[in-house]
Design a protein around this nucleic acid. Structure first.
Length: 516
RNA sequence: GGCGAUAUCGUCUAAGGGUUAGGACGUGGCCCUCUCAAGGCCAAAAUCCGGGUUCGAAUCCCGGUAUCGCUACCA
């Protein structure tokens, strides 16, 4: 059996790597748990992956451990290296910072090959010359059209190469793990509890693929080998990942044992589903983190929402800021059943954060949005910062997503804005309005102390003189100065816009009104 | 087909043998009001089915069903 001699290779590798990665922070080496997030660059970071990353990150931070990032890019067919940056950016946007990595499996191939060779030498693995088709044996029916050809019950197929001395065929061999029969494999999952399977149910899974490249001696590692070898090498103590791996875990437990390494603690987290309770996929619309970023969600809101999908603090808290999350997070709170991704609730979280966040924390996000819209002005960052702050504060109870600041609230930041036809239709009906608004413009122009009450007095005075309800004039004025039916209370809006702008916009609108 | 996992309002979840089964989103109503939000109040809304164990079961056990996952030289 492989002893500590086998392990020493990994220990050496591990310590070398760590000392390299940590050469700057050489002071206090954390002794807490070590966890990792290991995406593969076959797409953008999707919400399921993001939540897995979040749980890992929360666990690491809560426990004072280390969060490691590893890119699992061993599938050359589906791999898209250019996607890595996007994944890293999404993690950064979510505020999930990592302590080590990103490591790339494609750059660590020798490690996996060495491990496979050792297993081979120890008899824990064997060479398999079968093509994938031949290995699958009589199971070709599986590829047939669904609906017909019911499956024949079968046990896991064992490759003929396993026992007989294999005859090399025309293709180079893959290396398969030799699952020991007549035993069971068990582990305790931190979320799903004790798991046990009889080894007969575990197929002799591939460790190293047969080389595609005619020149290559050995092939690329499969997920099972790569993940286990790396988790050993990186001294991962807790493997927190999606529940789709629960059924694979016994294979990995077998691998840890065969490699003479301690088995980490596994914690599988339930999957995220679409509204139809199918696994969340593109069919359900936006599934990538970046698309939510683009839509104008706040990362903290998104994080809060994601965290409460499949995890509960145990009490009734819904609104949990990051420090609160960090304080409370534990694997014990992770649910065992899959959760439906509920966009409406996500939006609710966003409105909550838009309103409850200290304004100053919101300003950079709003600035970013205005920049995107091309209406940001540099003076709002320094001289007029207080004005900007007040305006954002005034607007935010009515915002749901960041683009609201540059869409319906555009008139607060720019002099070029559109008038909503429905708003005009609704509030510019009365034929007395042109005259009243003209008078209001004059009256407002004469105000000396431009603030809430004088504005209100001016308007109500005119409404009274004309014998109309103040509301009529208020609503018409709102449309005139911001182009929208939806906006903050009128007199606060006036104060924020400033006297000259309000008067100018009222006058500008008069001709159009008179025509009606 | 085999193996595994899961099952509480439409959705996210709380209640680890004794509660009128709680909260949140969403939905409906009312209040507030200058539009629209926000906010406040109220309402409807659930223990998958069947057996056990127990004085007592959402909770423990068994069976069924449904759903999800794995069953790849994907991860």
């Amino acid at each position: 059996m492989p002893g500590s001699a086998k392990l020493s290779c990994f220990q050496f590798q591990a310590s070398r790597k760590v000392s390299c990665a940590k050469k700057m922070a050489s002071t206090t080496q954390s002794s807490g748990p070590r966890v990792r997030f290991a995406p593969s660059p076959t797409g953008y970071l999707h919400v399921g992956g993001a939540r897995t990353a979040l749980f890992n990150w929360l666990f690491a931070r809560h426990e004072g451990g280390t969060f490691i990032l590893r890119v699992e890019d061993t599938d050359v067919e589906r791999n898209r290296p250019e996607l890595v940056d996007g994944i890293l950016n999404s993690l950064r946007w979510l505020g999930l910072d990592w302590d080590e990595g990103p490591m790339f499996q494609s750059q660590r191939l020798e490690l996996y090959r060495a491990a496979a060779e050792k297993l081979l030498a120890a008899g824990a693995a064997y060479l398999c010359y079968c093509s994938a088709e031949r290995y699958a044996g009589g199971d070709a029916a599986e590829a047939a059209e669904p609906g017909d050809a019911p499956h024949a019950p079968r046990r896991v197929t064992r490759c003929p190469c396993r026992d007989s001395k294999p005859v090399p065929g025309d293709q180079k061999p893959a290396i398969r793990f030799r699952v020991a029969l007549g035993a069971t494999t068990a582990f305790d999952d931190a979320v799903f509890g004790h798991q046990e399977v009889v080894n007969e149910e575990i197929e002799d899974f591939v460790l190293l693929r047969s080389p595609k490249d005619p020149g290559a001696e050995v092939g690329l590692p499969t997920y099972q080998l790569g993940a286990v070898v790396d988790d050993i090498d990186m001294r991962i103590t807790h493997v927190i990942r999606g529940a789709d791996h629960l059924s694979n875990t016994p294979k990995q437990v077998l691998l840890y044992r065969a490699l003479g390494a301690p088995v980490p603690i596994f914690a599988h987290v339930p999957l995220i589903l679409g509204p139809d309770r199918k696994r969340l996929s593109k069919r359900h619309g936006a599934t990538s983190v970046s698309s939510y970023q683009d839509e104008g969600f706040l990362p903290e809101a998104f994080r809060n929402f994601l965290c409460l999908l499949g995890w509960s603090s145990g009490d009734d808290s819904e609104y949990l800021r990051t420090d609160e999350l960090l304080k409370r997070f534990s694997l014990a709170g992770v649910s065992r059943s899959n959760a439906v991704f509920d966009r409406a609730k996500l939006e609710w979280y966003n409105t909550q954060y838009l309103q409850l966040l200290p304004v100053d924390e919101l300003l950079p996000a709003v600035q970013g949005e205005l920049e995107r819209a091309g209406i940001w002005r540099a003076e709002w960052a320094d001289g007029d910062r207080e004005w900007f702050r007040r305006t954002v504060d005034l607007l935010r109870p009515r915002t749901r997503l960041l683009p609201d600041f540059s869409h319906w609230a555009r008139a607060f930041f720019s002099d070029t804005f559109d008038y909503d036809p429905q708003a005009k239709e609704k509030f510019w009906k009365d034929e007395r309005l042109p005259a009243m608004l003209g008078r209001l413009a004059d009256s407002l122009a004469a105000v000396t102390d431009w603030s809430h009450d004088p504005c209100e007095h001016a308007l109500r005075g005119i409404a009274e003189a004309e014998g109309v309800k103040a509301g009529l004039l208020i609503n018409a004025t709102r449309v005139a100065i911001v182009g929208q039916a939806v906006a903050p209370p009128l007199f606060e809006t006036m104060v924020v816009l400033g006297q000259s702008r309000v008067v100018e916009r009222l006058k500008r609108v008069l001709p159009a009104l008179a025509v009606r």
